[in-house]
Amino acid sequence: MSTAPSQPQFEPARIIIVMGVSSSGKSTIGAALGRALHAPFLDGDKYHPEANVEKMRNGIPLTDEDRWPWLEALSAALVEAAEKKNVAVGACSALRKTYRDFITEKAGEPVLFVYLDGSRDVIGERMAKRHHEYMPTSLLDSQFATLEVPDPDTENVLKVPVTDPVNRIVTTVTAALPQHKSFKRWQ
């Protein structure tokens, strides 16, 4: 009997979204994964309308109504990027299942969500050490209150711990994506 961990069972996807609460490392992991896959990386923060940015800057949590246009714009941009390179990586909180379903519906194809799983304490420590243009630490509790942890039995998700080093997370994700060849400098 093999003791090697089994590969996760999920649907192959050209669009990969690194998701989780604020300060989980979405942008860092997403950018590194994009480099590893030689794929465009789109940071979801850049797709927020200015009204959303102002609300967050003022410590006001976003509502579903605030999120739909943002998620639609990001989804469209990811589809366009995937059309050009056959793969695209995005960073997006995608905290609720309805948001993940909406993104997948708008994409019109499977989307793999890479869930950066971390405790409130670990994420809180990270958030306290960084400065974000418009995401104050006061919004972290609302992020965890909104989070619906993805279920690998019913969603296209790969769960990885935020406490792993960046290179280990990228290796874990790329190993689970045999349909996408990792970019190696010597190739």
Rank of each mutant, 00 (worst) to 15 (best):
residue 185 R to H: 10
residue 76 A to M: 10
residue 52 N to V: 01
residue 156 N to Q: 02
residue 135 M to N: 01
residue 64 D to Y: 10
residue 86 N to L: 10
residue 33 L to I: 11
residue 101 D to M: 01
residue 70 W to F: 07
residue 92 C to R: 00
residue 112 L to G: 00
residue 53 V to E: 04
residue 10 F to H: 14
residue 162 V to C: 08
residue 57 R to A: 15
residue 56 M to T: 03
residue 140 L to K: 03
residue 26 K to I: 10
residue 178 P to I: 03
residue 61 P to W: 13
residue 84 K to T: 12
residue 149 V to M: 11
residue 160 V to Q: 02
residue 58 N to A: 14
residue 108 G to C: 09
residue 146 T to R: 00
residue 57 R to Y: 12
residue 55 K to M: 04
residue 99 Y to I: 03
residue 97 K to M: 11
residue 28 T to Q: 09
residue 11 E to A: 14
residue 20 G to K: 01
residue 183 F to H: 13
residue 87 V to K: 06
residue 114 V to I: 10
residue 94 A to F: 06
residue 112 L to S: 00
residue 34 G to P: 01
residue 43 D to W: 09
residue 75 S to R: 03
residue 132 H to F: 13
residue 13 A to I: 03
residue 93 S to N: 06
residue 111 V to A: 05
residue 121 D to A: 15
residue 35 R to K: 11
residue 3 T to A: 14
residue 67 R to A: 12
residue 178 P to K: 07
residue 31 A to I: 00
residue 180 H to L: 08
residue 158 L to Q: 10
residue 72 E to P: 05
residue 71 L to Y: 07
residue 9 Q to E: 14
residue 151 D to N: 15
residue 159 K to A: 12
residue 135 M to V: 09
residue 42 L to N: 01
residue 30 G to T: 02
residue 70 W to Y: 08
residue 107 A to Y: 02
residue 68 W to N: 06
residue 97 K to A: 06
residue 174 T to S: 08
residue 51 A to D: 08
residue 9 Q to H: 10
residue 63 T to I: 01
residue 42 L to E: 02
residue 51 A to V: 15
residue 84 K to Q: 14
residue 4 A to D: 14
residue 120 R to A: 12
residue 140 L to F: 13
residue 91 A to K: 04
residue 97 K to P: 03
residue 173 V to C: 03
residue 12 P to E: 12
residue 86 N to R: 13
residue 64 D to L: 09
residue 82 A to F: 09
residue 99 Y to R: 00
residue 7 Q to A: 15
residue 121 D to P: 07
residue 186 W to T: 12
residue 182 S to A: 14
residue 7 Q to T: 12
